[in-house]
Design a protein around this nucleic acid. Structure first.
Length: 271
DNA sequence: ATGACGATTCAAAATCGA
């Protein structure tokens, strides 16, 4: 095999893999990704619908799930190597799993939401989120060099740019868009020179969302989304970037997740 | 627009998400 194959990767906060198993089939039909990174599977590994996912075309699976909360997974058409579960918060809360597929390190990451009060002194959940981001930065810098082919994707629960929220000014004290979180996320990004793949395709001034609250009667009409889901690549993979899509139609699949799936296309390696 | 929703859990009201 002279050149690596093109690869389509997907990241999706599915908000319960068992409840939304039929939507995985729709995703497979609509987009046909080679690799699917899931977050919030809310499913202990022994109960994961492994046979159903295999039947959809994803026999290779890396799972880190628990009862009730969180949970991440990587589903793949191609073999997974070096499967690793990372526990940056030392709580065994199933937020990060990685594996190598077709020579590319792929990470499915679920950053803590952080609760309501944007003050780490008063809100331990927010303190945990900031500490988790700090630990991810140092952990990832030990795992990867900029010249490694790696993809970091998932629900980061931070909308870093003004164009990543519906109203930058109103959101400055709302968790997901506070300056301190954005600063912490920036340090994660700088730890390995990660490239924000979305903004290689969509100009930084253009509104972009991947999540819309369940609370709006009509999420599309309310138009108050945030870009909480991300896909980053190492500089080594930048030449292979060939497409980025927010599968907005997925927000309507019934019963909907509040997150839409993201798609990233990597071209075959010219070398 | 800090919520009018939704998922989960020793099963009703609480917790969490963001």
């Amino acid at each position: 095999m002279a050149a690596t194959s093109p690869l389509r990767l997907c990241s999706w906060n599915i908000n319960s893999v068992r409840l939304r198993l039929p939507l995985l089939q729709r995703l497979a039909q609509a987009a046909g990704p080679d690799v699917i990174c899931l977050q919030e599977t809310k499913c202990p590994d022994p109960l994961f619908p492994a046979l159903d996912c295999a039947a959809l075309g994803y026999p290779y699976q890396a799972l880190a799930g628990m009862k009730g909360y969180n949970g991440v997974a990587i589903l793949s058409r191609y073999p997974l190597e070096e499967i690793r579960v990372h526990d940056w918060g030392n709580r065994q809360d199933c937020r990060h799993i990685s594996a190598r597929v077709c020579g590319v390190a792929v990470h499915s990451l679920y950053i803590p939401a952080g609760g309501d009060e944007p003050d780490p002194e008063k809100n331990p959940k927010f303190a945990y989120k900031l500490g988790y981001l700090t630990a991810v930065a140092s952990g990832l810098s030990a795992l990867h060099r900029p010249e490694d082919p790696a993809v970091l994707m998932g629900d980061f629960n931070v909308a870093p740019l003004p164009s990543d929220v519906w109203d930058h000014r109103k959101m400055l004290r709302v968790i997901t868009h506070t300056p301190v979180e954005v600063d912490h996320l920036r340090r994660v990004q700088d730890s390995c020179g990660w490239v924000d793949a979305a903004r290689e395709f969509v100009p930084s001034q253009q509104r972009l969302s991947t999540w819309w609250s369940y609370r709006a009667a009509d999420w599309r009409a309310a138009d108050k989304g945030r870009r909480l889901d991300h896909v980053w690549v190492t500089p080594a993979l930048k030449p292979r970037l060939s497409g980025y899509t927010v599968l907005t139609e997925g927000r309507d699949w019934d019963p909907p997740s509040d997150h839409a799936p993201l798609l990233l296309d990597l071209a075959s390696d010219p070398a």
